[in-house]
Design a protein around this nucleic acid. Structure first.
Length: 818
DNA sequence: AGCACGCCGACT
DNA sequence: GTCGGCGTGCTC
């Protein structure tokens, strides 16, 4: 039999065919971990297909099957293959994601002496190495390296192998993470025996006393205790315990322990825990009923639900009920959040109702924690997985529900290889396990809403259904003002805070209420605009916004168009109105904090940016701090979006809403709308909240729509934009990005590939397909020409496969940003 | 990733 | 004339 194997820990795109020795043919199954000769060494691989047709190669047989029961289910293998196929990422990388933990990075070799009488005239170091190996019998390559740290041992060893003095054999490295054990000690004698021997425990009185103390302590405990505790409480050491064990006074053993990542989850709650009673929320109640009905029906293709959230508490209740239903049916659930920081509240929500059944999984956990959680999922102990997108490939049995919280978030798509999309994976899982899928958000993605509206079912998303079916009216008492900062300037206020916002802050503080100031940092000072006419500088050819680049070897600043490659030296005057107040606009969080301190010296100000949100703990502390009203003004960047709700907040200021508005990216409108919508909704729903959106371009249509905060209206507008510009959902996109240290060859290679694609497309007469570029990629500020980008519209993925792009190319299928 | 192969410059 | 630098390309 010939099988297809994905070799793991080898960064290659293809899988390899192997023969199965006759004696293994009955045992071989898809998903099994096997070992096979690869190149010059032995490697691990996962079986991804059986009974492969004969290929032209001279095939090698696999060496062994590592375990009979596959680590990876055939369903998971199928999902991994689909993802690899659609997003064109290496199958080995996806298979690795399905495995318990990374297996050791490198192939290892072990060496043994082949010829006992080594030649005397060998150099001294060679003799030393041979002596070392002779002393040990069989030695691991890296042990030899450690023994001779000053020498490069690998070439010497290779030479000795060639000279027939050494034998080299490939050795499989052990998995990095494994079950953790802790050594324990327990008393094994009676008090009586103890008293008989308490004075002859050691040779010296000091030793005797240490051992006596240890025994005393173990008597007190009565049960097996971790040896570390014994050391700590009695001052004894390992030798003492070994001696006592030899005399059979105590019993040493090992206990498997479970590294619980949930230990660190802070169970102080920010108003979470008690789910809302749904009887008062008609929309949520109806939503839940539809979902439960869908869960009950087992056959047919079910839609995935787009859940238009209006209120966090109601949606939590919906999740709880849906998950409960799955658990009752003996199935399990997967609840994902876009970022690690959002997982604690989900853990809290579910572990209150299902203690012991919840497991957390995200990339921030240690290898050991991940390994243990993986094993507990594999063995069926964990029924509810809370985590980020890396949890999608956990070996969960009989999956019943998949929930993606805040499904619009860009973190649901990996930024680096393998680049893929969580919703795509969720759809594939649904196909395999017949799950109920819920994609939930306050601001649902345009593309999904569009497909739902026109009943478009494709490979990417399947069939979608929007719930609640009736759009929820906006209930919060909000007063939103768009502030023209040009007018502020003209009337003499050069401050970053408008008079209206200052007055509102003053009022909130006077009433003992709270305020949030938001500063969008994206595109920090990289774009240039005129303070008088409010216009950003745009490309002469294609009207895209020009982006500022400080050139390394020059004092002048370059403006660069990322759509067509046009560039110019930054002018001194605004080309439109001749004003000299043309500048790149950047305002730091620190600066804003100072400003506020100056204006409101008595207010307690809390800054929340990258520095203060480094760790989960600090992050949570800051929030609790603010929620408890230990601070009056919260200043933050986009990371505070969609966190929690703060009922005492009555003023929200978007300090400079323009930032990021005009980034050269076709998806920027949607991202800004989602972000600002989230920020505005940080306010609770108890008091009237005043929102100030400060801008230099109040006529901007997007800002007007944000001020209206009517998602349906924004949807209509943006769908028209997408149609006009022929963007998703009206076309498919593939973004190719190429990076090379050498500017010229980067450009040359990119142009060459674009040329090949164009001629291929015209050869087959594909009129819908389009090749745009290459243009400089917006990734490297210092050296903007090092990266080049080609955007493909309606080009079939098979065509890219045929190109077989080499190193340096990044392939982004269905990109969400370019 | 790890290794072989192969093409150029430094040294016996 | 040979050793060894690492640039390129292959692994069933």
């Amino acid at each position: 039999m010939i099988i297809k194997v994905s070799i793991i820990n080898v960064p290659i795109n293809s899988a390899f065919d192997y023969l199965v020795p006759e004696e293994l043919e009955r045992k071989i199954r898809v998903g099994q971990l096997i070992t096979a000769p690869f190149n010059t060494y032995l490697a691990y691989g996962v079986v991804i297909e059986l009974n492969v047709p004969h290929s032209v190669f001279e095939l090698l047989p696999i060496r062994s099957i590592c375990q009979d029961e596959p680590y990876v289910s055939k369903e998971m293998v199928s999902v991994a293959l689909s993802v690899s196929d659609h997003f064109l990422c290496p199958i080995s990388k996806l298979i690795e994601m399905t495995l318990p933990t990374r297996f050791s990075e490198f192939a290892e070799f072990e060496y043994s002496l082949l010829n006992a009488q080594w030649v005397e005239r060998k150099s001294q170091i060679e003799q030393q190495i041979l002596l070392f190996i002779n002393g040990k019998g069989v030695v691991n390559g890296n042990k030899i390296e450690k023994q001779f740290p000053t020498v490069k041992t690998k070439p010497i060893l290779s030479m000795l192998v060639k000279a027939n003095l050494l034998q080299r054999a490939p050795r499989l490295p052990k998995a990095v993470a494994r079950t953790k054990y802790v050594k324990t000690a327990a008393i094994a004698i009676s008090r009586q025996t103890f008293y008989e021997h308490e004075n002859d425990l050691g040779k010296t009185p000091v030793t005797n006393e240490r051992r006596r103390m240890a025994l005393e302590y173990l008597f007190d405990e009565g049960i097996p205790v971790a040896v570390n505790w014994v050391y700590a409480s009695s001052g004894c050491n390992k030798a003492d315990l070994d001696e006592l064990a030899d005399r059979e006074y105590i019993v040493l053993s090992e206990v498997e322990i479970f590294r619980d990542p949930l230990e660190r989850v802070n169970h102080r709650s920010l108003g979470y825990g008690q789910p809302a009673d749904l009887t008062s929320d008609a929309a949520a109640k109806e939503t839940l009923q539809v979902m439960l009905d869908s869960q009950a029906k087992s056959s047919d293709i079910k839609p995935s639900f787009l859940y238009q959230k209006s209120d966090q508490k109601s949606s939590d209740s919906v999740y709880l009920r849906v998950v409960e239903n799955a658990i009752n049916e003996g199935r399990s659930a997967m609840v994902l959040a876009p970022e690690m920081a959002f997982t604690p509240k989900l853990v809290r929500l579910f572990s209150l109702k299902f203690p012991g059944l919840v497991g957390l999984f995200h990339s921030g956990m240690s290898n050991g924690e991940k390994y243990d959680t993986w094993m507990r999922v594999y063995s069926g102990k964990i029924k509810i997985i809370v985590g980020t997108m890396s949890a999608l490939f956990l070996p969960i049995n009989d999956l019943g529900v998949i929930i993606l919280e805040e499904c619009h978030d860009s973190s649901y798509r990996s930024a680096f290889s393998p680049i893929f999309d969580s919703i795509y994976v969720a759809e594939k899982l649904k196909k395999q396990f017949n799950t109920l899928n819920i994609y939930s958000s306050q601001t649902l993605p345009i593309e999904l809403l569009y497909k739902e509206k026109y009943n478009i079912s494709d490979q990417k998303t399947g069939l979608l259904k929007l719930l609640p079916s009736l759009p929820t009216a906006f209930e919060t008492d909000l007063e939103i003002k768009l502030i023209d900062m040009r007018l502020e300037l003209k009337t003499g206020n050069r401050d970053v805070l408008s008079r209206g916002l200052q007055e509102s802050l003053r009022q909130s503080l006077a009433n003992g209420e709270q305020a949030i100031l938001f500063l969008n940092r994206r595109g920090d000072s990289t774009y240039v605009f005129c303070r008088d006419c409010g216009q950003s500088l745009r490309c002469e050819n294609c009207d895209s916004v020009l982006v500022e680049h400080k050139m390394e070897n020059s004092r002048s600043t370059m403006l660069l168009c990322h759509s067509c490659g046009f560039n110019m030296i930054k002018p001194e005057k605004c080309p439109k109105c001749d004003s000299k107040s043309i500048q790149s606009y950047g305002l730091g969080v620190e600066k804003l904090e100072e400003k506020c301190k100056g204006l409101f010296p008595t207010a307690r100000i809390l800054r929340w940016d990258l520095d203060s949100a480094k760790s989960e703990v600090l992050d949570e502390l800051a929030l609790v701090h603010f929620a408890n009203h230990s601070a009056d003004i919260l200043i933050g960047t986009q990371m505070m979006a969609k966190k929690y709700q703060f009922p005492q907040v009555t003023t929200i200021g978007l300090v400079l809403a323009d930032v990021g508005l005009s980034l050269p990216d076709p998806f920027v409108n949607e991202r800004i709308f989602q972000l600002y919508y989230e920020i505005i909704h940080l306010a609770g729903k108890q008091a009237k909240t005043r929102v100030y959106i400060q801008t230099f371009q109040p006529e901007n249509e997007l800002l007007r729509l944000i001020t209206n905060i009517e998602p349906a209206e924004f949807f209509g507008w943006e769908v028209q934009n997408r149609f006009r510009l022929n963007l998703p959902p009206f076309c498919s996109l593939i973004n190719l990005e190429y990076h090379h240290s050498d500017q010229n060859s980067a450009k040359y290679d990119a142009y060459q590939i674009a040329g090949v694609l164009r001629s291929k497309l015209s050869a087959i007469g594909d009129e819908k397909a389009e090749v745009i570029g290459p243009v400089p990629a917006y990734t490297n500020i210092k050296n903007p020409f090092a990266g080049w980008r080609i955007l493909l519209k309606n080009v079939k993925i098979e065509m890219i496969k045929e190109l077989d792009l080499g190193q340096g190319w990044k392939i982004d299928v269905d990109p969400i940003t370019i």
